[in-house]
């Protein structure tokens, strides 16, 4: 935990604490509908940040994050409806199961590169989707699992909000430590130049598999949290649209920035709800937003702002480099 604070200057730490305080007092000022909305943003932030560990940091573009997300959600849901295991354990089982599945899926996927890697991740997530969809007797197929029992103290919207806020903060802190650890730096080296990284003596596939599994675990956390939040799970948690949604969220915020996916999920859900409220053509609007982002704002929202303030910070950053 020490290094977590050491690596950031005071301004950033204050900013983070302020953000946490903001989210913590938010429920006092807004209605329950909006609390749910913010809760959704928080959960999507974990999923997208987890995906970005693999995509932005390690440069492995996955087309199938939704498969692992759904594994998390369904594991928790199935345990809760079929067994008496307490909620906390069911919630932990989600990411554990997602991690186990990621080891298997990842073991195959990291053998491929570029577009083949992406297509294989897509195929595996489609298999997961088909299993959920087709195994009617166990997963209730396209009816989904509804009315999942959640303990009394978490059934109110506000309480669940605080519960997920804490888990989301822990996850983001863990991810922050991972990307700044030697492991995280190795992943970035691997993204920039796999050949050279290999020559330095790094076992590329092992690192990629580790990134794949870690990313899968965080996707599982998000899935399990969403299961408790929504109290219903459906097979479309695993479909292609959900995967692309996560990819778009990362792009929207900026994949080369730690907070990019988190900012992306806040903006994405905000846009989704606002635009959907006055037109049914939200996909059209989203498509246009993506094109504008790709052509005019390549670094995403966070990239755009950090570049525009870069000039101001130029001198400060130069000093920082010297002191390192």
């Amino acid at each position: 935990m020490k290094s977590f604070f050491k690596q950031r200057n005071n301004g950033k730490a204050v900013g983070l604490l302020a953000a946490f305080a903001f989210f913590a007092v938010l429920p006092l000022f807004i209605g329950e509908g909006y609390i749910s909305l913010v809760n959704e943003m928080l959960i999507l932030a974990v999923a997208a940040s987890g995906l970005n560990l693999m995509m932005g940091y390690a440069g492995m573009v996955s087309f199938g994050p939704s498969g692992l997300y759904a594994v998390g959600a369904y594991t928790t849901a199935l345990i809760l409806i079929y067994t008496e295991i307490p909620f906390g354990l069911a919630l932990i089982a989600g990411p554990v199961m997602a991690g186990i599945i990621s080891v298997v899926v990842g073991w195959f996927c990291v053998r491929l590169t570029h577009v083949y890697f992406s297509l294989l991740t897509l195929a595996f997530s489609q298999i997961i989707h088909t299993i959920i969809f087709g195994w009617y007797g166990f997963t209730h197929g396209d009816d989904g699992i509804v009315d999942i029992p959640v303990p009394e103290f978490l059934s109110s919207i506000t309480n669940y909000y605080y519960f997920s806020l804490i888990i989301v903060c822990i996850c983001l802190a863990l991810l922050w430590m991972i990307v700044n650890s030697p492991f995280g730096k190795t992943l970035q080296a691997l993204r920039e130049n796999p050949e050279r990284t290999e020559f330095v003596g790094i076992h590329i596939r092992r690192y990629q598999l580790a990134a794949f599994v870690l990313s899968g675990v965080f996707l599982g956390v998000a899935g399990s949290l969403y299961c408790g939040f929504n109290k219903n799970v459906f097979p479309d948690f695993a479909d292609v649209m959900k995967s692309t949604e996560m990819l778009v969220v990362c792009l929207l915020g900026g994949i080369y920035y730690f907070l990019g996916p988190a900012v992306g999920s806040i903006v994405y859900i905000f846009l989704d709800k606002t635009i959907s409220s006055f037109t049914e053509y939200w996909p059209l609007a989203l498509g246009l937003v993506i094109i504008v982002l790709l052509i005019f704002m390549r670094g995403g929202i966070v990239g755009f702002f950090s570049e525009s303030v870069a000039a101001m910070k130029e001198r400060g950053r130069a000093k920082q480099h010297v002191s390192h």
């Binding site: 995509m55 573009v61 087309f63 570029h114 577009v115 992406s118 692309t244 990819l247 778009v248 792009l251 994949i255 053509y281 996909p283 059209l284 989203l286 498509g287 246009l288 993506i290 094109i291 790709l294 390549r298």
Partner: peptide, 20 residues
């Protein structure tokens, strides 16, 4: 590759809605 995926994905959304 990600940029290409996203651009062509955006076209899926746009063409789909324009057809609707």
């Amino acid at each position: 590759m990600l940029d290409q995926f996203l651009l062509t994905f955006a076209l899926i959304l746009i063409i789909g809605d324009l057809c609707k």
